[in-house]
Design a protein around this nucleic acid. Sequence first.
DNA 1: GAAGAAGATTTGATCGATTCCAAAAAGCTG
DNA 2: CAGCTTTTTGGAATCGATCAAATCTTCTTC
Lengths: 156, 156
Amino acid sequence: MPAAPESEQLLRSAHLRVTRPRLAVLDAVHEHPHADTGSLIADVRRELGEVSHQTVYNALRALTDAGLLRNIQPSGSAARYESRVGDNHHHVVCRSCGAIEDVDCAVGIAPCLTASDDHGYAIDEAEVIFRGLCPTCSSASITDQNQSPGRDPHVR
Amino acid sequence: MPAAPESEQLLRSAHLRVTRPRLAVLDAVHEHPHADTGSLIADVRRELGEVSHQTVYNALRALTDAGLLRNIQPSGSAARYESRVGDNHHHVVCRSCGAIEDVDCAVGIAPCLTASDDHGYAIDEAEVIFRGLCPTCSSASITDQNQSPGRDPHVR
DNA sequence: GAAGAAGATTTGATCGATTCCAAAAAGCTG
DNA sequence: CAGCTTTTTGGAATCGATCAAATCTTCTTC
Protein backbone atom coordinates (compact mmCIF):
# COMPACT_ATOMS: atom_id res chain seq x y z
CA MET A 1 0.00 0.00 0.00
CA PRO A 2 2.06 2.92 -1.32
CA ALA A 3 1.64 6.37 0.15
CA ALA A 4 1.79 8.21 -3.16
CA PRO A 5 0.73 5.91 -5.99
CA GLU A 6 1.07 8.68 -8.54
CA SER A 7 4.68 9.45 -7.76
CA GLU A 8 5.49 5.79 -7.71
CA GLN A 9 3.89 5.35 -11.10
CA LEU A 10 5.89 8.28 -12.42
CA LEU A 11 9.12 6.65 -11.35
CA ARG A 12 8.20 3.27 -12.78
CA SER A 13 7.19 4.66 -16.12
CA ALA A 14 10.56 6.39 -16.29
CA HIS A 15 12.28 3.04 -15.64
CA LEU A 16 13.62 4.25 -12.33
CA ARG A 17 13.68 2.15 -9.20
CA VAL A 18 11.20 3.22 -6.60
CA THR A 19 12.91 4.28 -3.40
CA ARG A 20 11.75 6.30 -0.44
CA PRO A 21 14.25 9.14 -1.01
CA ARG A 22 13.18 9.52 -4.62
CA LEU A 23 9.52 9.60 -3.73
CA ALA A 24 10.23 12.19 -1.05
CA VAL A 25 12.27 14.34 -3.43
CA LEU A 26 9.56 14.18 -6.06
CA ASP A 27 6.91 15.19 -3.54
CA ALA A 28 9.06 17.96 -2.08
CA VAL A 29 9.53 19.55 -5.49
CA HIS A 30 5.82 19.25 -6.21
CA GLU A 31 5.01 20.96 -2.92
CA HIS A 32 7.66 23.67 -3.22
CA PRO A 33 8.23 24.55 -6.84
CA HIS A 34 11.43 26.54 -7.46
CA ALA A 35 12.93 25.46 -4.15
CA ASP A 36 16.71 25.28 -4.02
CA THR A 37 18.69 22.16 -3.24
CA GLY A 38 19.29 23.13 0.37
CA SER A 39 15.65 23.50 1.28
CA LEU A 40 14.74 20.36 -0.66
CA ILE A 41 17.23 18.43 1.46
CA ALA A 42 15.56 19.88 4.54
CA ASP A 43 12.11 18.92 3.24
CA VAL A 44 13.16 15.36 2.53
CA ARG A 45 14.68 14.99 6.00
CA ARG A 46 11.55 16.38 7.60
CA GLU A 47 9.69 13.64 5.77
CA LEU A 48 12.02 10.69 6.17
CA GLY A 49 14.45 11.47 8.95
CA GLU A 50 18.16 11.54 8.19
CA VAL A 51 18.98 11.26 4.48
CA SER A 52 22.39 12.05 3.07
CA HIS A 53 22.68 15.13 0.91
CA GLN A 54 24.39 12.99 -1.69
CA THR A 55 21.25 10.94 -2.01
CA VAL A 56 19.16 14.01 -2.68
CA TYR A 57 21.68 15.20 -5.26
CA ASN A 58 21.58 11.79 -6.90
CA ALA A 59 17.81 11.71 -6.92
CA LEU A 60 17.54 15.21 -8.36
CA ARG A 61 19.98 14.30 -11.09
CA ALA A 62 18.19 11.05 -11.91
CA LEU A 63 14.75 12.64 -11.92
CA THR A 64 15.96 15.53 -14.04
CA ASP A 65 17.68 13.27 -16.54
CA ALA A 66 14.49 11.23 -16.76
CA GLY A 67 12.52 14.37 -17.57
CA LEU A 68 10.43 14.26 -14.41
CA LEU A 69 11.94 17.46 -13.05
CA ARG A 70 13.43 20.55 -14.58
CA ASN A 71 16.49 22.30 -13.28
CA ILE A 72 16.82 26.08 -13.25
CA GLN A 73 19.79 28.09 -12.08
CA PRO A 74 19.18 31.75 -11.46
CA SER A 75 22.44 33.70 -11.17
CA GLY A 76 23.84 33.79 -7.69
CA SER A 77 21.61 31.08 -6.31
CA ALA A 78 21.95 27.36 -5.75
CA ALA A 79 20.25 25.07 -8.28
CA ARG A 80 16.46 25.04 -8.14
CA TYR A 81 13.97 22.48 -9.40
CA GLU A 82 10.39 22.42 -10.57
CA SER A 83 7.95 19.75 -11.63
CA ARG A 84 6.30 21.55 -14.52
CA VAL A 85 8.09 20.04 -17.47
CA GLY A 86 7.61 20.02 -21.18
CA ASP A 87 5.22 22.94 -21.34
CA ASN A 88 7.47 25.74 -22.54
CA HIS A 89 7.01 28.16 -19.68
CA HIS A 90 9.44 30.75 -18.38
CA HIS A 91 10.29 32.59 -15.15
CA VAL A 92 10.27 35.94 -13.41
CA VAL A 93 13.00 36.30 -10.80
CA CYS A 94 12.99 38.97 -8.11
CA ARG A 95 16.31 40.83 -8.05
CA SER A 96 15.96 41.52 -4.39
CA CYS A 97 14.66 38.40 -2.65
CA GLY A 98 15.19 35.77 -5.33
CA ALA A 99 11.54 34.72 -5.47
CA ILE A 100 10.51 32.97 -8.68
CA GLU A 101 7.18 32.75 -10.46
CA ASP A 102 6.14 30.91 -13.58
CA VAL A 103 5.28 32.87 -16.69
CA ASP A 104 3.72 31.43 -19.77
CA CYS A 105 5.37 32.29 -23.03
CA ALA A 106 4.33 35.76 -24.11
CA VAL A 107 4.13 35.22 -27.83
CA GLY A 108 3.23 31.58 -28.14
CA ILE A 109 5.68 28.78 -28.60
CA ALA A 110 7.26 29.23 -32.00
CA PRO A 111 8.57 32.82 -31.91
CA CYS A 112 10.40 32.24 -28.63
CA LEU A 113 12.29 29.40 -30.20
CA THR A 114 13.46 31.35 -33.20
CA ALA A 115 16.80 33.09 -33.05
CA SER A 116 17.47 35.82 -35.59
CA ASP A 117 20.81 34.24 -36.47
CA ASP A 118 21.47 30.77 -35.15
CA HIS A 119 25.21 30.75 -35.99
CA GLY A 120 24.78 27.24 -37.33
CA TYR A 121 23.68 25.90 -33.96
CA ALA A 122 21.06 23.15 -33.80
CA ILE A 123 18.86 24.91 -31.26
CA ASP A 124 16.40 22.79 -29.30
CA GLU A 125 15.38 25.06 -26.45
CA ALA A 126 14.86 28.70 -25.60
CA GLU A 127 14.76 29.85 -22.02
CA VAL A 128 13.50 33.27 -21.02
CA ILE A 129 14.23 34.88 -17.67
CA PHE A 130 12.50 38.09 -16.68
CA ARG A 131 14.09 40.08 -13.88
CA GLY A 132 12.69 42.78 -11.66
CA LEU A 133 11.22 43.38 -8.22
CA CYS A 134 8.42 41.29 -6.78
CA PRO A 135 5.42 43.14 -5.32
CA THR A 136 6.71 42.76 -1.77
CA CYS A 137 10.23 44.00 -2.41
CA SER A 138 8.89 46.65 -4.72
CA SER A 139 6.72 48.27 -2.05
CA ALA A 140 9.41 47.71 0.56
CA SER A 141 11.95 49.69 -1.45
CA ILE A 142 9.52 52.59 -1.75
CA THR A 143 8.67 52.61 1.95
CA ASP A 144 12.08 51.83 3.37
CA GLN A 145 14.27 54.55 1.89
CA ASN A 146 17.47 53.77 3.75
CA GLN A 147 17.79 50.11 2.80
CA SER A 148 20.77 48.96 0.86
CA PRO A 149 19.50 48.15 -2.63
CA GLY A 150 19.95 44.90 -4.43
CA ARG A 151 22.41 42.95 -2.32
CA ASP A 152 20.31 39.89 -1.62
CA PRO A 153 18.18 40.66 1.44
CA HIS A 154 15.70 38.20 2.88
CA VAL A 155 16.74 35.23 0.78
CA ARG A 156 16.44 31.94 2.60
CA MET B 1 51.15 58.26 -21.39
CA PRO B 2 48.51 55.61 -20.91
CA ALA B 3 48.65 52.36 -22.84
CA ALA B 4 44.92 52.20 -23.52
CA PRO B 5 43.48 55.71 -23.41
CA GLU B 6 40.01 54.43 -24.27
CA SER B 7 39.80 51.96 -21.41
CA GLU B 8 41.19 54.55 -19.03
CA GLN B 9 38.57 57.01 -20.16
CA LEU B 10 35.86 54.42 -19.65
CA LEU B 11 36.94 53.90 -16.07
CA ARG B 12 37.15 57.61 -15.31
CA SER B 13 33.75 58.37 -16.73
CA ALA B 14 32.35 55.65 -14.49
CA HIS B 15 33.98 57.34 -11.48
CA LEU B 16 36.26 54.37 -10.93
CA ARG B 17 39.88 54.66 -10.00
CA VAL B 18 42.23 53.73 -12.80
CA THR B 19 44.40 50.77 -11.85
CA ARG B 20 46.45 48.38 -13.92
CA PRO B 21 44.40 45.33 -12.95
CA ARG B 22 41.15 46.99 -13.94
CA LEU B 23 42.54 48.06 -17.29
CA ALA B 24 43.81 44.56 -17.88
CA VAL B 25 40.47 43.00 -16.94
CA LEU B 26 38.62 45.38 -19.22
CA ASP B 27 40.93 44.56 -22.11
CA ALA B 28 40.78 40.83 -21.45
CA VAL B 29 37.00 40.82 -21.63
CA HIS B 30 37.10 42.89 -24.81
CA GLU B 31 39.49 40.43 -26.38
CA HIS B 32 37.72 37.29 -25.19
CA PRO B 33 33.99 37.90 -24.97
CA HIS B 34 32.11 35.26 -22.93
CA ALA B 35 35.29 34.09 -21.21
CA ASP B 36 34.85 32.64 -17.74
CA THR B 37 36.47 34.01 -14.62
CA GLY B 38 39.25 31.45 -14.61
CA SER B 39 40.52 32.24 -18.06
CA LEU B 40 40.18 35.95 -17.43
CA ILE B 41 42.43 35.58 -14.41
CA ALA B 42 44.91 33.78 -16.64
CA ASP B 43 44.69 36.52 -19.27
CA VAL B 44 45.28 39.25 -16.74
CA ARG B 45 48.31 37.43 -15.33
CA ARG B 46 49.71 36.90 -18.79
CA GLU B 47 49.48 40.65 -19.23
CA LEU B 48 50.63 41.91 -15.84
CA GLY B 49 52.42 39.07 -14.06
CA GLU B 50 51.09 37.86 -10.74
CA VAL B 51 47.75 39.34 -9.78
CA SER B 52 45.60 37.95 -7.00
CA HIS B 53 42.39 36.25 -8.03
CA GLN B 54 40.59 38.40 -5.49
CA THR B 55 41.64 41.47 -7.42
CA VAL B 56 40.15 40.13 -10.62
CA TYR B 57 36.93 39.26 -8.81
CA ASN B 58 36.86 42.77 -7.35
CA ALA B 59 37.47 44.37 -10.72
CA LEU B 60 34.82 42.27 -12.45
CA ARG B 61 32.32 43.19 -9.77
CA ALA B 62 33.18 46.89 -9.93
CA LEU B 63 33.08 47.02 -13.72
CA THR B 64 29.83 45.10 -13.85
CA ASP B 65 28.20 47.31 -11.22
CA ALA B 66 29.33 50.34 -13.18
CA GLY B 67 27.66 48.97 -16.30
CA LEU B 68 30.92 48.56 -18.22
CA LEU B 69 30.61 44.79 -18.35
CA ARG B 70 27.76 42.35 -18.33
CA ASN B 71 27.71 39.14 -16.38
CA ILE B 72 26.18 35.96 -17.74
CA GLN B 73 25.95 32.62 -15.98
CA PRO B 74 25.10 29.61 -18.12
CA SER B 75 24.08 26.64 -15.96
CA GLY B 76 26.96 24.51 -14.86
CA SER B 77 29.65 26.99 -15.78
CA ALA B 78 31.61 29.60 -13.89
CA ALA B 79 30.52 33.22 -14.34
CA ARG B 80 31.27 34.72 -17.74
CA TYR B 81 31.58 38.32 -18.83
CA GLU B 82 31.14 40.34 -21.98
CA SER B 83 31.64 43.93 -22.98
CA ARG B 84 28.58 44.39 -25.17
CA VAL B 85 26.24 46.16 -22.80
CA GLY B 86 22.95 47.95 -23.10
CA ASP B 87 22.02 46.63 -26.53
CA ASN B 88 19.47 43.95 -25.70
CA HIS B 89 21.15 40.96 -27.23
CA HIS B 90 20.91 37.34 -26.19
CA HIS B 91 22.95 34.13 -26.35
CA VAL B 92 23.17 30.67 -27.86
CA VAL B 93 24.94 28.17 -25.64
CA CYS B 94 26.30 24.85 -26.89
CA ARG B 95 25.09 22.00 -24.70
CA SER B 96 28.16 19.99 -25.45
CA CYS B 97 31.19 22.29 -25.35
CA GLY B 98 29.74 25.35 -23.65
CA ALA B 99 30.62 27.74 -26.46
CA ILE B 100 28.60 30.95 -26.52
CA GLU B 101 27.61 33.23 -29.38
CA ASP B 102 25.70 36.49 -29.42
CA VAL B 103 22.24 36.57 -30.93
CA ASP B 104 20.27 39.69 -31.60
CA CYS B 105 16.72 39.68 -30.37
CA ALA B 106 14.54 37.73 -32.76
CA VAL B 107 11.40 39.80 -32.62
CA GLY B 108 12.68 43.25 -31.84
CA ILE B 109 13.02 44.77 -28.44
CA ALA B 110 9.53 45.21 -27.07
CA PRO B 111 7.98 41.71 -27.37
CA CYS B 112 10.93 40.11 -25.62
CA LEU B 113 10.40 42.33 -22.63
CA THR B 114 6.72 41.59 -22.29
CA ALA B 115 5.61 38.79 -20.01
CA SER B 116 2.13 37.41 -20.50
CA ASP B 117 1.45 37.71 -16.78
CA ASP B 118 3.94 39.69 -14.73
CA HIS B 119 2.58 38.53 -11.32
CA GLY B 120 2.86 42.13 -10.14
CA TYR B 121 6.61 42.21 -10.66
CA ALA B 122 8.27 45.40 -11.85
CA ILE B 123 10.18 43.79 -14.69
CA ASP B 124 13.19 45.65 -16.07
CA GLU B 125 15.01 43.01 -18.08
CA ALA B 126 14.38 39.92 -20.15
CA GLU B 127 17.17 37.48 -20.88
CA VAL B 128 16.90 34.79 -23.51
CA ILE B 129 19.16 31.77 -23.66
CA PHE B 130 19.02 29.43 -26.64
CA ARG B 131 20.49 25.99 -26.17
CA GLY B 132 21.61 23.43 -28.69
CA LEU B 133 24.69 22.04 -30.40
CA CYS B 134 27.28 24.22 -32.07
CA PRO B 135 28.31 23.31 -35.64
CA THR B 136 31.46 21.56 -34.44
CA CYS B 137 29.84 19.42 -31.76
CA SER B 138 26.87 18.82 -34.02
CA SER B 139 28.94 17.22 -36.76
CA ALA B 140 31.09 15.45 -34.19
CA SER B 141 28.07 13.72 -32.67
CA ILE B 142 26.96 12.52 -36.11
CA THR B 143 30.38 11.17 -37.01
CA ASP B 144 31.35 9.77 -33.63
CA GLN B 145 28.50 7.39 -32.85
CA ASN B 146 29.91 5.88 -29.67
CA GLN B 147 30.54 9.08 -27.76
CA SER B 148 28.76 9.60 -24.47
CA PRO B 149 26.17 12.28 -25.05
CA GLY B 150 25.78 15.47 -23.14
CA ARG B 151 28.10 15.12 -20.15
CA ASP B 152 30.26 18.18 -20.75
CA PRO B 153 33.10 17.05 -23.04
CA HIS B 154 35.82 19.41 -24.18
CA VAL B 155 34.93 22.27 -21.88
CA ARG B 156 37.90 24.19 -20.66
C1' DG C 1 9.20 -16.07 -1.79
C1' DA C 2 14.15 -16.70 -1.70
C1' DA C 3 18.65 -15.65 -4.16
C1' DG C 4 21.42 -12.96 -7.10
C1' DA C 5 22.69 -9.02 -9.88
C1' DA C 6 22.09 -4.32 -10.85
C1' DG C 7 21.40 -0.18 -8.94
C1' DA C 8 20.87 3.15 -4.64
C1' DT C 9 22.36 5.04 -0.34
C1' DT C 10 25.86 6.19 3.09
C1' DT C 11 29.94 8.14 4.64
C1' DG C 12 33.50 11.10 4.24
C1' DA C 13 36.84 13.23 1.46
C1' DT C 14 37.61 16.58 -2.13
C1' DC C 15 37.08 20.20 -5.46
C1' DG C 16 36.10 24.48 -7.73
C1' DA C 17 34.19 29.00 -7.51
C1' DT C 18 33.58 32.71 -4.72
C1' DT C 19 33.80 35.53 -0.58
C1' DC C 20 35.69 37.32 3.85
C1' DC C 21 39.36 39.52 6.29
C1' DA C 22 43.24 42.46 7.89
C1' DA C 23 47.34 44.47 6.46
C1' DA C 24 50.11 46.75 2.87
C1' DA C 25 50.09 49.52 -1.30
C1' DA C 26 48.48 52.70 -4.62
C1' DG C 27 45.31 56.39 -6.65
C1' DC C 28 43.19 60.77 -6.08
C1' DT C 29 42.27 65.40 -3.92
C1' DG C 30 43.72 69.76 -2.24
C1' DC D 1 53.55 66.00 -1.65
C1' DA D 2 50.52 65.03 2.44
C1' DG D 3 46.55 62.71 3.75
C1' DC D 4 42.52 60.15 3.07
C1' DT D 5 40.20 56.68 0.61
C1' DT D 6 40.00 52.92 -2.22
C1' DT D 7 42.53 48.75 -4.09
C1' DT D 8 45.36 45.06 -3.94
C1' DT D 9 47.38 41.17 -1.41
C1' DG D 10 47.58 36.74 0.55
C1' DG D 11 45.50 33.50 3.08
C1' DA D 12 41.76 31.32 5.19
C1' DA D 13 37.01 30.09 5.05
C1' DT D 14 32.48 29.06 2.97
C1' DC D 15 29.29 26.99 -0.04
C1' DG D 16 27.45 24.07 -3.47
C1' DA D 17 28.39 20.13 -5.77
C1' DT D 18 31.01 15.89 -7.05
C1' DC D 19 33.88 11.66 -6.39
C1' DA D 20 34.72 7.06 -4.53
C1' DA D 21 34.37 2.85 -1.80
C1' DA D 22 31.62 -0.01 1.12
C1' DT D 23 27.07 -1.35 2.35
C1' DC D 24 22.37 -2.00 1.74
C1' DT D 25 17.83 -2.24 -1.48
C1' DT D 26 15.15 -3.08 -5.11
C1' DC D 27 13.80 -5.72 -8.92
C1' DT D 28 14.07 -10.04 -11.43
C1' DT D 29 14.00 -14.79 -11.92
C1' DC D 30 13.28 -19.39 -10.61
